[in-house]
Every structure is written in structure tokens, then in C-alpha cells.
């Protein structure tokens, strides 16, 4: 489910709405208002509950951990659970960084080029090619798994991270292409034409006119690609055969996938594995949102 960013289009933040209000105030309005906040709070509990359990359990002293007492606050705080799982996850974290950073940046760069060409410098057949690229975004990875393992093993790209980076770049292309194509569509054609009149070729226009205005699209594309490469399981599971190259999701599944490890250690390892993407979300959430908020509405 790494392709949840489908149809993500970069858009300008929503316009400020007019403040003047013609709404008819019913006498039931205060109740409706109360009901609305009550419902929102209820949903908030539902969405935050697992995270509460995650954090509280991994910070409890192992002796007071049980599924029955999952909702109780710790009586003493302890980092014992983290200490227990950290050695098993640290390599995975490192590998995931080494994997997700280049995979997202390169995929975004290639996507920028594709997006630019497909929106501003169309070649004959571009309209035919774009939907074909787009379909790659939705393909179930299962349907390429067997040929991919054969090919990567033939190419000697299996086992380490390099092959994994390559496939993340490739399967990320449809999404990054879409993001940049939508973004560059928003640039007025006149700027491009002006550059052409000045004698700039396609490459110069791309590098000197398009790329300098593209950082917001880069932010969106890189964040989405980083998140999906970080969270991927399937490719990592078939392409890394040596545990010293496991991405963190594989390491996580390996140590916490059975129930032979204690509840607190399972929660601590899940928390560690999630922290980087959570951090990206909290710090760069507005780009995350910007990609999301405008989503799926171009049709």
C-alpha cells in the first residue's frame, strides 16, 4: 500500500474564504456545535488510541506490561524496552536511510524531467504515453515479483541495497512524474515561450526556468517517495538476502512479527521503526498535506 499518494497533485493552499456570513443561525445551533465537537473528540480518541498504547507501553517498566493493563499510565518510566530492541533495529534504520534518501531524490529528479516534458515540451505520442506511465502507480507489486527477483539476481543486483534503491526509483517514477506534470502545468506557457524566444533549448529551459520554481513540488515528491520507500516491505523482503542489508520494516517484522517477543518490545520496535516517517510528517506536514488536500480533484 505504498501508492496511497495516487492522484496527488500539488496545488496552492486553499484560498481564504470570505468572512461575511449569511448562514442562518438556528436555535439548535449550540447543540449542533456541541455535537460536532463531541463527535470530533470521539474520532480523535479513536485515531490517537493506538499511538497512546504504543508510546505508553514502550515506556513502561517491563514488569508492569500486559495487554490487560495497556491503557494504564506507567507507574515508573523506563527505557528498558528500547534498550532491548535497539541493537536489533539500528542496522535496519541505517539501511532504510541509505535506501530511502537516494531513492526519493533520484526518483524526484527523473520525475521532474518527465513531468516537464509531458506538460511543457510534448513530443508526439506524449498523450498516449502518460496514461501508460500512470498505470504503473497502481500495479500490484505481486505481479512483478517473480520476474523482478529473477532479473535482479541475473544482474547481480540482489542481496544488497543498490538493487532495492533501483526498483524504488523505478516504481516511484509514475507518482513523481504525475506530481511534476501537474505542477508544471500550472506554470504559464508564456514563460516557457519567452525562454524559447531567447534561444534557450529544452534542457536550458528545464534547468533555468522550470527547476528554479519547482522546490515545492520537490518537497512533495521527495516526502511521498521517502515515506513509501521507508514503509515498503515486499521489495525489501525479496531483494535483500543478507540481514545486514535489511531495511527496518523487514527487521521489524522479523523481531516483532511473531508473538514470541514481549508486548513492550513489540511496541518499542514499532515505535522506533515509525519515528522517522512520523518526524517527517510532523515537521514537513504542510507539504504532505498540500500533496493530499488537492488530491484526486483534477478529473
Amino acid at each position: 500500500m505504498t501508492t496511497t499518494a495516487e492522484k496527488t497533485v500539488v496545488a496552492k493552499p486553499p484560498k481564504k474564504r470570505k468572512e461575511r456570513d449569511f448562514r442562518i443561525q438556528s436555535k439548535y445551533a449550540p447543540y449542533a456545535r456541541f455535537g460536532k465537537y463531541a463527535a470530533l473528540l470521539l474520532f480523535l480518541v479513536f485515531f490517537l488510541m493506538p499511538i497512546y498504547a504504543l508510546i505508553v507501553t514502550s515506556l513502561k517498566d517491563p514488569s508492569e506490561v500486559s495487554v490487560q493493563r495497556v491503557w494504564e499510565l506507567p507507574s515508573t518510566w523506563s527505557f528498558a524496552s528500547f534498550e532491548a530492541v535497539w541493537p536489533k533495529l539500528q542496522d535496519g534504520l541505517f539501511n532504510s536511510v541509505m535506501l530511502a534518501v537516494p531513492a526519493s531524490i533520484i526518483s524526484a529528479l527523473l520525475g521532474a524531467a518527465n513531468g516537464f516534458v509531458l506538460s511543457k515540451w510534448r513530443f508526439p505520442g506524449a498523450d498516449f504515453v502518460f496514461p501508460l506511465i500512470l498505470f504503473g502507480m497502481f500495479i500490484p507489486y505481486q505481479s512483478v515479483l517473480i520476474p523482478m527477483t529473477e532479473t535482479m539476481s541475473f544482474l547481480g543486483l540482489k542481496g544488497g541495497l543498490d538493487g532495492l534503491i533501483l526498483v524504488h526509483i523505478i516504481y516511484g517514477l509514475p507518482l513523481t512524474t504525475l506530481i511534476f506534470r501537474s505542477y508544471f502545468s500550472g506554470i504559464s506557457d508564456e514563460i516557457i515561450e519567452a525562454a524559447e524566444v531567447d534561444g534557450a533549448g529544452m534542457l536550458r529551459t528545464f534547468f533555468h526556468v522550470a527547476l528554479p520554481v519547482a522546490p515545492p513540488a520537490f518537497a512533495v515528491a521527495i516526502i511521498w517517495q521517502f515515506t513509501s520507500a521507508w514503509n515498503d516491505f515486499l521489495f525489501g523482503a525479496v531483494l535483500t538476502t543478507n540481514k545486514s542489508y535489511w531495511p527496518v520494516t523487514i527487521a521489524l517484522n522479523n523481531i516483532a512479527g511473531g508473538q514470541s517477543i514481549p508486548f513492550n518490545e513489540a511496541m518499542a520496535s514499532a515505535l522506533i521503526a515509525c519515528l522517522p516517517t512520523l518526524l517527517v510528517y510532523v515537521l514537513l506536514g504542510r507539504f504532505f498535506m498540500r500533496g493530499l488536500m488537492a488530491g484526486a480533484l483534477k478529473g
Binding site: F47, P50, Q259, A273
Partner: peptide, 24 residues
């Protein structure tokens, strides 16, 4: 705040989501 709280689970790995909910 509400919006962020409703969307953030999307940023988590589904392996982790599965592990959390399997216990819950």
C-alpha cells in the same frame, strides 16, 4: 490539529500498524 491527527497514520509502515493492532 484535528486534521493532522486523523491523517498521520498514513505515514506509518503497515507492518508497524499491523503489529500495533494485532495486540490491540
Amino acid at each position: 490539529f484535528f486534521r493532522s491527527s486523523f491523517i498521520f497514520p498514513m505515514a506509518l509502515s503497515l507492518i508497524a500498524v499491523g503489529i500495533i493492532w494485532r495486540w490491540l
